[in-house]
Design a protein around this nucleic acid. Structure first.
Lengths: 142, 142
DNA sequence: TCCTTTTAAGACTAATTTGTCTTAAATATA
DNA sequence: TATATTTAAGACAAATTAGTCTTAAAAGGA
């Protein structure tokens, strides 16, 4: 699988949050709607908050919300916050510092494919899906 | 990470085997050369053997070898043998049966990117790297 | 101020993946 | 045939990831 389970949860939650017009959405609502364990989701969203992708508010009327405009939140930033940068340096043989200078045998062939993957994650932002998610015609769970 | 650690080991070992002119290579030699735990590698290569990607021979002069021409062994077949088909159905939100009929909000955007990834894995075969690996100018370990 | 609600933090458990070790089975060769 | 070598199989342990639970801290409202 491309990403960790936590990372997939994070992307789903981020899509959900960005589709809600309210600034702040309680995590309980997200976990109910997306059928994700509340406590696990809380931990994951805390990471997004620490990375300044979300803001959070405690107490009644509390919850989480986007910390910047949806068009400034890329899938890449979410993956980076949850799974770290391992993915982005990804060598097909998992060599430590596989590079043009010290490449593995697949490096040259793999590079353009990885580039396209990165381009997609960089250029894809939450705002692109807001209307789809709002329409409720697209699956957000199981 | 794209694939499991076991899968990366499998690809590395397959490249090594296909670059050796001998039909049969002892697993001990592979694990020594690639610095992979012998017993763990043995288990992984057993899976490739069960999937008829490799053949194996017990006893002195035993070892593993390609079960078909290198140009017929794709990266995809190795990934499939080790990690199963989860990767190939991969939805960005990890939904169970995300499809054109019942898509997640990112499905349409993700589809062409995944297609390119699959094309690469399908069209890339071991023979393409034999000379590079033989030249020993490319890294095969850490 | 006090109570309730909600996130933050972290200890703890469960599941999965990774890695080790022992024994069995097959086979070449002396 | 006996021995040494090598893969096969599977039990077991360690590490990582996923998930649960409890308590603390913050904030709104009576």
């Amino acid at each position: 699988m491309l990403f960790s389970k936590a990372c997939h949860y994070a992307i789903r939650a981020a899509l959900y949050i960005s589709s809600r017009s309210e600034n702040i959405v309680p995590i309980r609502e997200i976990s109910d709607e997306l059928e994700i364990s509340f406590h696990f989701l809380t931990k994951i969203l805390q990471q997004l908050t620490r990375h300044h992708i979300l803001t959070s508010l405690k107490g009644p009327k509390g919850g989480v919300g986007l910390n910047k405009p949806a068009e400034e939140i890329s899938l890449k930033s979410i993956v980076l916050a949850i799974d770290g940068q391992d993915f982005f340096e990804g060598c097909l043989l998992r060599l430590d510092k596989c590079s043009d200078a010290h490449p593995c045998p697949i490096h040259d062939e793999w590079k353009p494919v990885r580039r396209q993957l990165l381009n997609f994650l960089e250029s894809t932002t939450l705002d692109q899906f807001q209307s789809k998610v709002k329409s409720k015609k697209f699956r957000m769970k199981v």
